[in-house]
Design a protein around this nucleic acid. Sequence first.
DNA 1: TCGCTCTGCGACAATATGCCGCATCCCTGT
DNA 2: ACAGGGATGCGGCATATTGTCGCAGAGCGA
Lengths: 181, 181
Amino acid sequence: MNTAPNEQLSLLLVDDDATFCDVLRRALEKRNFSVTVAHSVEQALPLVQPNPPEYAVVDLKMGGASGLALVQLLHEMDPATRIVVLTGYASIATAVEAIKLGATQYLSKPANADEIVAAFGHLADPDLSLNAQPASVERLEWEHINRILQENGGNISATARALNMHRRTLQRKLAKRPSGG
Amino acid sequence: MNTAPNEQLSLLLVDDDATFCDVLRRALEKRNFSVTVAHSVEQALPLVQPNPPEYAVVDLKMGGASGLALVQLLHEMDPATRIVVLTGYASIATAVEAIKLGATQYLSKPANADEIVAAFGHLADPDLSLNAQPASVERLEWEHINRILQENGGNISATARALNMHRRTLQRKLAKRPSGG
DNA sequence: TCGCTCTGCGACAATATGCCGCATCCCTGT
DNA sequence: ACAGGGATGCGGCATATTGTCGCAGAGCGA
């Protein structure tokens, strides 16, 4: 942390959606963050090597390396970095992985800048209220598929075999967004 | 099985569903765990105060205090304890909290003993985890539907609403597999 | 009895799936 | 450099499953 109270906070934003990055960057800059943007893990690496950022917003599903690898790297470089993982394909399996690798919070799109900023300050809360609504079968299926996919290191063909499901069908299911519930 | 059965591994199982506990306890005992059962956080406390267990399986949604509090306590008492959170009301939010509070893994019901043991990570029996084939999505769906049906006292319409599924579809699914599993 | 919900089931349209093939890539051993 | 093997993404098409409607009967409390 810098001593100057009005110093901007360095923030790394990594998402392969250019439009999304533009919008979010502007919103974050208004909130006193000095934003650096990258569209892939590979592109982000040289930007963080010299001096790791204080904050980071990382998308998981990008071309090239998974955002999870970047989360791990950022956390190793500076454990004090507050990392928010933001993904349109949220699943419990990847959420668990992200947190274990050092992420501070895990949000699913759509999320606005305020939610993201709030997530930076989020602390573990053992009194979190529980959702009394059971998961829909659709959601359950999504979670299960993602867990097996995780176990198979992201290998779609292997996952399809493990689940006794046609690869084409798995592809189509993965292409769809997870539905709430 | 083939590994030398040295001393048993202490395991705390906390779930308010007595039947579920019975079944799971037996399954875990077969896998060389010394299982202690509690049906609430309050009931579990005196059991872990003298000597914390090496492993724990904790349900989140129970009468009384949230399982998250117990996760935190167990982790504080002994950071080496491997804690698996197992819940029928899985959500990303609680998954994130659970991991941050010290849980090793987060699973949603239905999950069998093999999956739970695998979730503890490494150790266990490598042979068991290797041939442990993940449940097919169909079987998962069937068990989930039946669990919710149970909770709704067999009311098909209510279950369909809870699962966000059309009543007609639920009827057809239920008619297809008269003998569940 | 009226009004409400649950239930089973037929029918038809909208989707989803299984299964084919094909064109890339990315390894790895030759 | 090359072939072989596997993984991936995707179009297309026949078939299976769902979503959605409607209807009639049963149970239940006011």
